[in-house]
């Protein structure tokens, strides 16, 4: 029972960006993907969510192949992505955005609603409920995007650069929220993050992507401590 990516190849136009990437996310665990720009991190999550077609290889969710499914059908199976740049529906209200998230979760609504728990913690979203999403600040937008994804009842959650463009304080808050999401939903989380240090600190395991391939993988804390990683990605000489 896990999200398994098996030696996939994908990319834009002619040139492949991912050349044989394999990884696994188990329910309830947080897995970070770090790597330099152009290594294929965003391509990876876009391929798993179905926005980019797979050229070869396979993606399975709990032993069911989703390799050829359209993004909407993957979402309905519980593979939910929070895209880079939040991508809220700008002219819908906060409430309507979250209602859109619930559409993907229809039919998998057993148990208590994790959305309520999140809204109780981050009350600011309740205050903003009727506001147009485009009027929110970047940090609030990221929160709505996360809650919207939770409303979709994810089994596996793909987060693409959640800290992008956020102030240090907001980044801290967003990472707190991600941790809370993991507790409440029990979903496996794949976290793609530019802030390698924070991502590794928050995760259980991690993959290092280089030139469209997995260069290293393992325990997040171990990787975070390794000299090679510190030199290449954490900016430590």
């Amino acid at each position: 029972m896990s999200l398994v990516v098996d030696t996939i190849e994908s990319g834009y136009d002619r040139a492949p960006i991912l050349t044989g990437v394999s990884l696994r996310v188990d329910p309830g665990e947080m897995v970070a993907v770090v790597g330099s720009n152009g290594a294929g991190k965003s391509t990876l999550v876009r391929t798993i969510s179905g926005l980019l077609a797979v050229r070869s290889g396979a993606i399975t969710v709990d032993d069911v192949a989703i390799t050829k499914l359209a993004p909407e059908r993957r979402a309905r199976r519980g593979v939910v992505m929070v895209p880079e740049g939040r991508k809220l529906f700008p002219q819908l209200t906060v409430g309507e955005n979250i209602a859109m998230g619930r559409r993907a979760g229809r039919g998998r609504t057993s148990g208590e609603d994790p959305v309520d728990a999140l809204l109780d913690t981050f009350t600011i979203l309740r205050e903003r409920w009727g506001q147009q999403a485009s009027l929110l600040s970047g940090g609030e937008q990221q929160m709505v995007a996360l809650v919207r994804a939770v409303a979709a009842r994810p089994r596996y959650l793909l987060l693409d650069e959640p800290s992008l463009g956020l102030s240090p304080l907001k980044t801290l808050e967003v990472f707190q929220l991600i941790e809370l999401v993991r507790e409440r939903t029990g979903a496996g989380i794949l976290l793609v993050e530019q802030m390698a240090d924070q991502a590794l600190a928050a995760s259980d395991r991690a993959y290092v992507l280089e030139h469209g391939k997995v260069a290293m993988e393992g325990d997040a804390a171990t990787l975070r401590a390794s000299d090679e990683i510190r030199r290449a990605y954490l900016g430590v000489a």
Binding site: S36, N37, E161, L164, Q194, Y233, G235
Partner: peptide
């Protein structure tokens, strides 16, 4: 925001 989206070494 010239460093947005850059990793630490690039920054």
């Amino acid at each position: 925001e010239p460093a947005a989206g850059l990793i630490a070494t690039e920054t």
